[in-house]
Design a protein around this nucleic acid. Structure first.
Lengths: 205, 205
DNA sequence: TAGATTGTTAATCGATTAACAATC
DNA sequence: TAGATTGTTAATCGATTAACAATC
């Protein structure tokens, strides 16, 4: 455990294990080889990933399902509640605001903001004070690209430390804020490029 | 150019360059150092990425903006039109169906399907024949996790070669179909984990 | 010519995979 | 005990970065 070098990619896989386990009807023990086979990953990789978060694996029998889930949960911080606000209640914003799936990971979008005040939204006037008094840590930007930086700047004046940005702009933020850009169009275009490459390769065989 | 080993990650960066260039008001030449600085990437990395798609760079002056864009466009296949269908016109499905941003990358969601027939949707009865006659290559799954595999199986009976899956299930597909899973909840949870790690590190300094 | 930038080879860094001893 | 699985060290693979010659 001394030089336990965590690779970045582990963070992408732990939620996959967690979701797999959560949906697994059986309560039986699970092992790295079982997970590897089910999720089509390398056996050693899974073994190493699990070793990073848990030390309750037993040779021959593997891990107790509930213990392993608890250890992943703890490592990933799913048990720490995280409050997020969303700005821009358009189609995409609404879809996210309504989405039930965040709960499982301890995440709640507690309030949506937009230009207009509605049953669902507050206006931006109250944004800063709301975020400060409610100790909001995460901001979700689903406004158009013209307003994204402006919203981002406002977020930076609160206690928000992470921004999930759906506007196709690169945001300027202070060092202590981390930004994750999500771009639906480029994501799909990458999938399509992979598809075309694969088709090409098959033709050339 | 002989052993021009393309790294997987290039595909993630080329769209970023492309979008940056597209939105750049100036028509002046661009160089790897300029792009690197603007996008906060390594200079050598950008240089190598550009060399992969273009051979029109000139020492001292860099690349002509429009030529470089054309070369990225060509490499990534943005000039090849790709038709996609979407199944599940809920909140998220609607948001994607309405989204204008795909166009830029040659992608069009040409039809949505759902249980009910509406002004916007066809029912699944016509799904297979529609996809075949329209030569659909990409399927987008935005149904709930209970129905995702079923929809996926149906897609596999058509000419669809790539599936963009928003349902939180791992789909079983034949080898020649590639699947990209998108999970909003786990994506956000990873961002939050990064945030917590960063906060932790700052405290420990 | 001088200087900035390209294109490419070599070196480093990071992540995955292979190998194997420990053990339940 | 035998066998499956864990945990870990070493080897490989892949991607990024450093270094540098070529050149406009």
């Amino acid at each position: 455990m001394l030089q336990n070098t965590r690779t970045e990619a582990v963070l992408e896989r732990l939620p996959i294990y967690y979701e797999y386990l959560r949906k697994l009807p059986s309560e039986e023990n699970v092992s790295a080889p079982i997970l590897a086979k089910a999720l089509n990953l390398g056996e050693v990789q899974v073994r190493k990933d699990l070793a990073l978060v848990s030390h309750k694996g037993k040779p021959k029998t593997g891990y107790e399902k509930s213990e392993l889930m608890a250890d992943i949960k703890n490592y990933m911080g799913y048990d720490q509640k995280t409050k997020a606000v969303l700005v821009g209640l358009g189609k995409l914003g609404s879809a996210l605001y309504d989405y039930e799936g965040f709960q499982e990971f301890g995440i709640e979008i507690v309030q949506a903001f937009d230009r207009e005040q509605t049953r669902l939204t507050k206006t931006m006037d109250s944004f800063t004070s709301y975020c400060i008094t409610e100790h909001i840590e995460v901001g979700i930007i689903t406004v158009d690209e013209v307003h994204a930086q402006e919203v981002c700047d406002l977020m930076a004046t609160t206690g928000i430390r992470a921004i999930w940005n759906f506007a196709p702009v690169r945001l300027n933020v202070p060092d202590y804020i981390i930004v994750q850009n999500v771009n639906m169009a480029t994501s799909l275009s990458i999938l399509i490029k992979h598809m075309r490459d694969q088709i090409e390769n098959q033709v050339n065989l």
